[in-house]
Design a protein around this nucleic acid. Structure first.
Lengths: 154, 154
DNA sequence: ATCCATGCAAACCCTTTGCAGTCCA
DNA sequence: TGGACTGCAAAGGGTTTGCATGGAT
């Protein structure tokens, strides 16, 4: 089933909740020595406002007052600090979305672009065992699952 | 244009085995209506000569007598006809390698770049079940496993 | 007062495309 | 012969970088 935080349905405007998300992320960045700046907050807020995995370009469009390089740099910082994770569509288009707790994989709807976290999906051990059989020591993996969400399956 | 006797480098001379591979692929392409041309054969031979997953650029370098566009077009054709499959490194660099039978996944060595097919690794069912739990109907997936091969683990 | 962060534009990388000429079937 | 294929160069998109300015700590 779907956990309470699995489906990414956001809001068009900053809500108290998303403002809290921004503050939280800014605080975590500050704790790692990164400065609290207006453009950076705008990037985080825009990312938090997206309902679906988004592209860097979409963020640039949503933030005409923020330089393109700043958006890209902000996004990269967020990925490096695990605040945002990258998802890859079937056509290899790169998108982003706010991270959730722990390691997990995404199920992406090819129709509407929605994303859901795959839960109770422990492929790690299976992959590691298979890697062992090939004489490899697994250190990581990249997995994306594609299909149709419930609403688009009808 | 390209002289059939023009040989460039040492790693260009085909072994009997790779020559057979080239003939086989050319034959399969011919069966699908694609022509047998010298540049295309060179691309296939160069791909078959690679020991590890390779980039399009590496093929261009290995084939200075073949136009870049031809290399890219040839590679795309080979992917579309399932003669070659694409693999994605952790840094999202795109590489290629000759296809093997059936659907499978790759284990990539982060040190030497070697690739091994994961055997007895049936994650399909697990993913589909997890997708179901999220209300999704799975239609495909992308999976790459990273780590160290036996030789690089020591 | 430091430097980190920003903005702009140009640079970059990788891949595709337009077009004219070439060659296989 | 005709249509597929090729080579060149130029365009394309997505992302990064150089550099001078601005701002957080």
């Amino acid at each position: 089933m779907i956990s309470s935080t699995a489906k990414h349905k956001g809001h068009d405007h900053p809500t108290p909740a998303s403002a809290a998300v921004v503050d939280d992320i800014v605080a975590q960045l500050a704790h790692q020595g990164y400065r609290d700046t207006e453009p950076r907050r705008l990037v985080i807020a825009a990312a938090a406002a997206q309902e679906r995995p988004f592209t860097a370009e979409e963020l640039c469009t949503a933030l005409p007052c923020v330089g393109r390089a700043t958006v890209y740099r902000g996004l990269r910082l967020l990925v490096e600090t695990d605040q945002v994770c990258r998802v890859l569509l079937e056509d290899r288009e790169l998108r982003y979305q706010l991270s959730h707790q722990g390691h997990h994989h995404h199920m992406l709807c090819a129709i509407c672009g929605a994303s859901a976290d795959l839960i109770d999906c422990d492929v790690e051990d299976i992959l590691r065992a298979a890697a062992d059989r090939s004489g490899f020591r697994m250190s990581g993996h990249w997995l994306e699952v594609y299909g149709r969400c419930g609403e688009c399956s009808d």
